[in-house]
Nucleic acid binder design. Structure first.
Length: 273
DNA sequence: AACCAGGGGTACC
DNA sequence: GGTACCCATGGT
């Protein structure tokens, strides 16, 4: 009982390549698969901004509409960007269809711990290597769900190193044990203001400012948070003369950051006229 | 504050 | 087919 939707500002391929999620893939040029929060979804691009979601209307409403943040007005959000900022405007135009997801905090926390000093492809491979042995099976795909904190908390560092996590293995283990024990209640963090949320996340070993900002933006919809990684640092240095423009971007700084990240990584600054 | 961590992708030879 | 360098960093 699939559902067909007409969606503007929605491009699954750009979301995959944007580096905010690691378990959404293209199965073919017009078919995408995402595994999130214990569920598997396939999306068919039918053309003319029409997409078929391989799920019930109830699942769409309860789950995927929230995950893709489909009720947010991206036209208005993008229109709120400062009009004199040429690099930003170009990035927003080129990135049409990119959206900030509302991902599961646990998976997002682990994903960005794993992301340290890795390429997007390497992060994806690392996530699959962790899911394959320890995630629950799913109907309709050979891929597995992301492992629960309880499952990972029962492992030892050696088990996680065997998944290719390297020096990040003890970090993931610390996160799993804090969450599984209840010492870190990820659901309760949603009620905290940004600064308190970031501080609680940074209580996990291996989580610094950048990883915490990513979790805040990509899991808790803190759209004003703009994580600074090597690519965004290049934007700040090369485009804005070393002065971060993000403080002046207001409530959607994190969304703009994501478009600029994609633009810089794909094209560099030299592509801008 | 400089340096290190595991390992895969990628550009270049 | 080597190999040097880079990568959505954080801890020491």
């Amino acid at each position: 009982m699939p559902v067909t939707l007409e969606l503007s500002h929605f491009d699954p391929y750009k979301i995959i390549e944007s580096g905010q999620c690691f378990r959404m893939i293209a199965l073919s040029p017009d078919t995408y698969e995402v595994i999130a929060q214990g569920k598997r979804l396939r999306i068919n691009d039918l053309g003319n901004r029409r997409y078929r979601f391989d799920c019930s209307a109830a699942a769409l409403a309860a789950h995927w509409r929230v995950y893709f943040d489909l009720d947010r007005d991206y036209a208005a959000l993008l229109d709120a960007a400062p009009k004199a900022d040429a690099f930003l405007l170009r990035a927003l135009a080129d990135g049409y269809g990119l959206r900030i997801l509302r991902q599961d905090p646990w998976e997002t926390l682990c994903g960005f711990i794993l992301s340290q000093r890795k390429h997007l492809k390497a992060i994806r491979a690392s996530m699959e290597a962790l899911c394959n042995p320890y995630g629950a099976p799913l109907a309709g795909t050979a891929r597995k769900a992301f492992p629960t904190p309880e499952r990972l908390a029962a492992l030892c560092e050696t088990d996680l190193r065997a998944c290719g996590l390297g020096y990040r293995a003890p970090y993931v283990l610390d996160a799993a044990r804090k969450v599984a024990s209840g010492a870190l209640d990820l659901a309760a963090l949603a009620a905290l203001p940004d600064d308190a949320l970031l501080n609680r996340l940074m209580g996990v070993n291996g989580v610094g400012v950048k990883v915490a900002e990513c979790v805040a933006l990509f899991a808790y919809a803190r759209l004003a948070r703009a994580p600074v990684d090597v690519w965004i640092q290049r934007v700040i240095d090369q485009v804005y003369g070393g002065v971060s423009p993000f403080a002046g971007y207001g409530a959607y700084a994190g969304v703009y950051q994501q478009y600029m990240f994609m633009s810089m990584r794909n094209d560099g600054y030299s592509a801008h006229p």
